[in-house]
């Protein structure tokens, strides 16, 4: 089965905590339940913090993967408004 393309992408490379999560949260707030957000980031701590915080807020973390170099991609599906 082919993976669903993200409904929205944000590039927060260069940002550090807590602004990484703040930006990701603002992005997902503006989306509809069921939509998927792709986050590109390079701050190491946020790679574990964003998925954890997203789950705490009731969202589904679909994927956390390194995309080459220092960059990571996190995909999150909005489950809750």
């Amino acid at each position: 089965m082919k993976e669903k393309a993200p409904d929205k992408k944000i590039d927060i490379r260069g940002l550090v905590c807590p602004y990484t999560f703040v930006k990701a949260k603002l992005a997902i707030e503006d989306m509809e339940v069921g939509q998927v957000l792709e986050i590109v980031l390079d701050y190491p701590e946020a790679v574990s913090n964003i998925p954890k915080s997203m789950q705490d807020h009731g969202q589904a973390v679909l994927k956390v993967e390194q995309s080459g170099g220092k960059d990571w991609i996190i995909t999150v599906r909005k489950e809750k408004d």
Partner: peptide, 11 residues
Amino acid sequence: SRHIILPEVGG
């Protein structure tokens, strides 16, 4: 930012 992070506040 510390408000936006709170689930009860948010953006």
